[in-house]
Amino acid sequence: MNRIEFSAEIADLLGRVRRRPIAGWPWRPGEEVPEGLPVKQSWGWLFAPDGRVLTLVNPRDGIVSLPGGSLEAEDLGDPGAALAREAVEEAQAVIGHPFYLGYLYDRIGSANGGHECARVRMAAPLYRVGPSVPDPASGRHYRRLLVAPGLAVELLGWGEQGVRQARAAVEAAALRLGVPTAANETIEELPLAGCTVFPS
């Protein structure tokens, strides 16, 4: 097994990671969202060429997330448009065309005023990130890490549902983007000044 490489600063950051409780939303891989079930959120597995994905760490509370969030009126009901917008707002990330992976069924509807809804998962190439700035919607200033998808599941605290979701993302990205199914294991923080990740 290869040693996972990371800096002392990243070790300190990851030492403060706090995982959210597992929500238990059933994962529906490859299934279209049923008509009448509103899509309220879209989150993305954003891939670098070496198979790693972008994760965001809020250094204030240690919460790790994938880029994404709630659909807004300007997204016109398109989860791909919502993901692209949220990636820019949260991570200053420019992505390629997102492709659909499936959805999580939220019967309690915590993102929909107590009514059932869908939380879509997508994947896309991560082309580049700009200079790091706070999210204009929340004021959060995320640290941007590239990590292997399996480690992302651990940091997110998503359990077995997350493992299944990551597998679907990796399989789709290998097929569509040509990324390796065995990702680089190095944990890397993207530069504050920004950089190119996936040559377009």
Rank of each mutant, 00 (worst) to 15 (best):
E160C: 04
M122T: 07
L101H: 01
L14S: 07
R143I: 08
R20G: 04
P79A: 00
R144L: 11
Q161I: 13
V170L: 11
G80Y: 09
V163K: 12
A166R: 02
A174N: 09
L56M: 14
D50Y: 05
A168L: 06
Y103W: 02
I95V: 06
Y142H: 14
H97M: 11
D50F: 03
V17M: 13
I187D: 07
A193L: 15
L146Q: 05
T196F: 04
G150M: 09
G36P: 04
Q92E: 09
G68M: 08
T55V: 15
S7A: 12
S7M: 13
V153N: 00
A166D: 01
A172S: 12
N184T: 00
P134Q: 08
L190T: 07
E72D: 15
V197G: 01
A137I: 11
V57A: 12
A11V: 12
P191L: 06
G109W: 11
S132F: 03
Y100D: 09
S42R: 03
R3C: 15
D78H: 08
T55A: 09
I187F: 08
A183M: 05
T181M: 12
E35T: 07
P29Q: 06
N2L: 15
R128L: 04
V153M: 01
L71P: 08
A48G: 05
L71M: 08
A87V: 03
V88P: 00
F6H: 15
A137W: 10
A87D: 07
E35C: 02
G80N: 06
V179F: 00
V170Q: 06
S138E: 15
C195R: 10
P131F: 01
A93M: 00
T186D: 13
P21T: 08
G130V: 10
L151H: 10
M1V: 12
G36T: 02
I108V: 15
H115L: 13
L145H: 07
A123T: 11
L54Y: 03
G51W: 01
M1A: 10
L101F: 04
A93R: 01
R140K: 14
D135H: 10
G178E: 11
R28A: 08
L83H: 06
P21I: 12
Y142R: 11
A137K: 14
L13F: 13
A166H: 02
L46T: 07
L83P: 09
D50G: 03
L155F: 08
L177V: 08
D135T: 09
G36A: 02
L156R: 01
R143V: 12
